[in-house]
């Protein structure tokens, strides 16, 4: 569950002060596929980056599963981030590593002593020697990567490099990478904006499937209404740094209050 309370983000630039987000209040429940839609420059990117503290709010707070993460120290924040996956418009894969190495990255950066094995009791793991632990982590990582490759349907591309893949395939690898640490939240920053409509549909289908099977909470920011229509159960409309509407997706579509929403709905025709 994600709670955003009175979040404001301003940039101070010598003489001018720009307000990018103004007193945002949002509540996203477990299992939601929550869409945040707005025109370019409305503040959506900044908002989603505040959710995992890639951007620090100027005031207000962000709460994930009851914990206020806004002012955490580096170490704790790093731990929290392992529970939040993120995918981007530009995919942001490591171009010099294979698909499997990319997917395993999130697990690779977890220290051996901090690792939590899935197929073993944690106490049993803790009692192992360093080398034994390392082996367990290696085996589990391999298993997890295979499992994810199957989910994203790219098993034959495990040893390929991202430059050999299409945009849609790269985004799928990015999704697998984001899910490797079993996060409870997946943030999607314009994840389909660089893809054609058919590929967009297949990515959204994949996200919906993952949400249904693992109950991971998904937050999607986009400027395309059809993306929201396709899979979101709730939506918030953001315009010029403020949330102007929010509610269940069907409600907002049917009974939209503002001009902006109307334009956004009409825009995708």
């Amino acid at each position: 569950m994600i709670k955003i309370k009175n979040l404001t983000k301003t940039y101070q630039n010598k003489k001018t002060k720009t307000t990018v987000l103004n007193n945002i209040n949002l509540e996203i429940e477990d299992g939601d596929i929550f869409g945040i839609i707005g025109m370019s420059g409305a503040g959506k990117s900044t908002l989603i980056r505040c959710m995992n503290l890639l951007e620090k709010p100027t005031s207000g707070s962000v709460h994930i599963d009851g914990i206020n993460i806004t002012n955490l120290d580096r170490k704790s924040l790093s731990k929290v981030r392992k529970n939040i996956g993120m995918i981007f418009q530009g995919f942001n894969l490591l171009m010099q590593k294979t698909v499997e190495k990319n997917i395993a990255f999130g697990l690779e950066i977890i220290r051996i002593k901090d690792f939590v094995p899935e197929n073993m009791k944690i106490n049993e793991y803790k009692s192992l020697s360093y080398l034994e632990k390392r082996k367990v982590k290696k085996v589990e990582t391999k298993r997890k990567v295979s499992e994810l490759l199957k989910i994203i349907d790219l098993e034959d591309k495990a040893k390929a490099y991202p430059s050999m893949l299409s945009g849609g395939q790269r985004q799928r690898v990015a999704i697998a990478r984001a899910l490797a640490t079993n996060p409870s939240v997946l943030l999607c920053d314009e994840a389909t904006s660089a893809l054609d409509s058919m590929t967009t549909k297949s990515i959204l289908t994949l996200l919906k499937k993952i949400n249904e099977e693992t109950k991971v909470t998904i937050v999607i920011i986009t400027h395309e209404m059809n993306v929201v229509k396709e899979i979101c159960n709730k939506v918030a409309v953001i315009d010029q740094s403020e949330i102007i509407e929010q509610g269940s997706a069907p409600d907002v579509f049917k009974n939209h209050q503002s001009e902006i929403t109307r334009q956004l709905i009409g825009g995708e025709l």
């Binding site: 995992n52 790093s78 731990k79 929290v80 981007f88 942001n92 490591l94 984001a178």
Partner: peptide, 17 residues
């Protein structure tokens, strides 16, 4: 590409990593 670095930060990677 700064995006790749941002992705690593979002996964909880330390500066050294």
């Amino acid at each position: 590409d700064k995006g790749v670095i941002e992705a690593a930060r979002s996964m909880g990677a330390s500066d050294m990593q």
